[in-house]
Design a protein around this nucleic acid. Sequence first.
DNA 1: GATTTAAATTACCGATCGGTAGATAAATTG
DNA 2: CAATTTATCTACCGATCGGTAATTTAAATC
Lengths: 214, 214
Amino acid sequence: MSEKSERLPRGRPRSIDRAAVLARATETFWRLGYEGASLSELTAAMGVSRPTLYTAYGDKADLFMAALEQYGGTYGTAPLRAFLAEAEIGTAVSAFLRIAAEGNTTPGMPTGCLIACCASTAAESQPAVRDRLAEIAEQTAAALAERFSTEVTAGRLSAEPGPFVRAQRLIDMMYAQAVRARSGETRASLMADLASRVTAVVGRPADVAAVKTV
Amino acid sequence: MSEKSERLPRGRPRSIDRAAVLARATETFWRLGYEGASLSELTAAMGVSRPTLYTAYGDKADLFMAALEQYGGTYGTAPLRAFLAEAEIGTAVSAFLRIAAEGNTTPGMPTGCLIACCASTAAESQPAVRDRLAEIAEQTAAALAERFSTEVTAGRLSAEPGPFVRAQRLIDMMYAQAVRARSGETRASLMADLASRVTAVVGRPADVAAVKTV
DNA sequence: GATTTAAATTACCGATCGGTAGATAAATTG
DNA sequence: CAATTTATCTACCGATCGGTAATTTAAATC
């Protein structure tokens, strides 16, 4: 007979939308980097006062790690989710690259990628950031590789290059797009040789219906 | 009868080794990023006092731009120079990637790349940095593409994918290596699928002597 | 050697940095 | 309603930020 929500713990419950407020912090870090984002800019963007920030998220380093997770759960994994959602592997690769390009050049948002650009810069002096980046990359590679592996088993993809090589090639292209977007390249420029890149990963163009090959 | 060195301009001439001192600043920016490198850390690493830094290099933003040039002239262009120095195109691509991997993981130096990681982060709030990054990328792409174009003309490389597509693919791999090194990957890990990547750019392995194909 | 010119140093500037103590306000339980 | 618990805010902390004025030191020309 217990309600889905467990008993509230006595005092005043939270009122702020932690996720929404964190998203504003994420955007600020994304735009200015870890060191470049001051607490004043962060609190102004988040719409909360300084002590609220500290009780809700901890210090600046904690907030950055939280922002990294928030970003990873939305923008960061959007390419992978688009990839996994497509049935045909060439289309999946194409979707991965297209969503990455879009995320790197969303109007009104910072260019590039919080992970590839900002966090990687901060990683040199913050081991926690560096280790988390390594984890994220490994998980993404594993998810991509699993899908490639499935394609190989189903006979829709050659065994060479191996699944992890293909996965790494895709991640490399995503990282590169982030850096290029950050240096001013347009979305169209990032998309320019998309078909060619799809071929470089799967061995054939994306728009060819190869599902029935086996 | 004029000496090679023109007449000294009256007062005390410079005594510091500008290039050497700048190299220390470059390393500091490379390790900590633009915002992360404080003037105290910079002057300590450079071995000069604060006013000396200002008279010699201008303010922090000027110093960073100078560091960018210094880096570009050494580490940044090392892969391209290695590429241009090789006679066989597959070997050239291989050298490009190998030198990039080494530059991203030199023991005792910061990991990754000042351009791809640190400068790209700062580019979002510093238009001068962003514009310079775009220039550097364009020049590098042009130099690589010219070589690929020559190979096509000589019949040693197929016309597709085009020279600029191949060049961009190579630059993308370099950018990606920088991010990956920054997140802790070892030099060996960056080199892992080198042969496969060479094939992805030139269409065949590096160690195949293809010069006589035409 | 006297003069000139600038490099380099010491000491310091106001502003802003990240972070926090103490007071206030709000929403629950009993 | 009274009591309890905690979220939030105002105001402020010492430290450090990037940058500079005034001075001293050093190396050239004349």
